[in-house]
């Protein structure tokens, strides 16, 4: 079953063609970093305009790389929930147009489901339910127990900022450019991770709750107090604080819920220090650890097409008037946005 997946939830235009949730025939991602660089972060109206101007070319190149045409497609999938509203509607409009013109099923996917399924590509025979998924990105930090296809239980989440948000904002404060996470990781390579003792909020609490806003404030305050401080040491210390928090909580929850398979997803999963630390911690306890290859960590269409392959079997197709929501409940358990805690 050939599915074309589209993701335009933030600043990457992603289109991919995936065969039966297993074989990626093409995965094209057009980043907009250059368009947003001078603003120090993603500007939603510009993201929407960039998606609109690029989408036809990205569709064309995904099809030609896969050696397929529109008439070969069996379904079209799109992330329609969770992200920048102005950006999401562009991908949704394109997906609906393809579904209408080709008369094929339209499958709406929650952007976070896409990240969960990024680990499923090529691993459907190894990864067994239930497993634990840590999703860390610029907008999200959460621990989910994946019970079955489309069925998740929330075991932990951030009370305030996402881990990626801290990296982005600190990078902006240091004028490191975008994407901030990659710039901080590069600098941290030559830094001393123990140089600054940044706070690790809630690390001693025995639950899955995260909090990163205090860490963000502490690091930015340290920079403001001493503009000439060693950037490499600062980045290494910040990275270590985030890694300590994520590893400690993930292992705590894995042990408590007896989950022996741990997956990592989302843009921050590109961070090699985090990957290594989780891998090591999992190994120590005899757990399996999985994380996607690099181009599947960032926002992409392949994860959406893969999620769609499995979820189409569970939920069927969507109608042409599916909605687009910036914040939406996730999965059968209806993990829902609440004003006082981001997911619950």
């Amino acid at each position: 079953m050939l599915i074309l997946g589209i993701d335009t939830s933030c600043d990457d235009t992603g289109v991919a063609i995936v065969d039966s949730g297993q074989w990626i025939l093409s995965n094209v991602i057009a980043s907009q970093h250059a368009a947003h660089e001078r603003f120090g972060g993603v500007v939603p109206v510009i993201a929407a305009r960039e998606h609109t101007s690029k989408i036809s070319f990205i569709l064309e190149s995904a099809l030609s790389q896969a050696g397929k045409s529109f008439s070969d497609l069996d379904a079209v999938a799109v992330s329609h929930h969770q992200g920048l509203m102005l950006a999401l509607v562009v991908g949704v409009s394109a997906a609906k147009s393809i579904a209408l013109a080709c008369d094929i099923p339209l499958i709406g996917i929650h952007h976070l489901e896409g990240h969960i399924y990024s680990n499923y590509i090529g691993r459907s025979d190894i990864l067994k339910f239930p497993f634990l998924c840590l999703t860390v990105a610029g907008g999200h930090t959460l621990l989910l127990k994946v019970l079955s296809h489309g069925n998740y239980e929330l075991l932990g989440h951030t009370r305030d900022d996402a881990a990626g948000e801290v990296l982005d904002k600190v990078a902006r404060h240091l004028n490191l450019g975008v994407p901030g996470g990659a710039a901080i990781e590069r600098l941290a390579l030559n830094g001393n991770p123990s140089a600054y003792g940044f706070p690790r909020p809630l690390i001693n609490r025995s639950d899955g709750e995260f909090s990163f806003s205090g860490l963000k404030t502490a690091v930015i305050a340290a920079i403001d107090r001493n503009p000439n401080l060693n950037q490499a040491d600062l980045c290494a210390s910040l990275q270590q604080a985030i890694v300590d928090l994520l590893v400690t909580k993930t292992m705590l929850i894995a042990e408590r819920h007896n989950l022996h398979q741990i997956t990592l997803a989302g843009g921050v999963a590109l961070n090699q220090t985090l990957r290594n630390a989780l891998q090591y911690a999992a190994q120590q306890r005899g757990y399996d650890f999985f994380t996607p290859q690099q181009d599947l960590c960032m926002d992409n269409g392949a994860m959406i097409a893969t999620a769609a392959y499995y979820l189409y079997k569970e939920r069927g197709a969507d109608s042409l008037d599916i909605d687009t929501l910036a914040n939406a409940p996730l999965g059968i358990m209806n993990i829902r946005y609440r004003h006082d805690s981001k997911y619950q």
Binding site: A48, R49, H51, T52, I55, S56, L59, L86, V89, V90, S93, A94, K96, S97, I98, L100, A101
Partner: peptide, 10 residues
Amino acid sequence: NIGVTTAKTL
């Protein structure tokens, strides 16, 4: 953005 993307894709 919606109208133009729709027309372009169709």
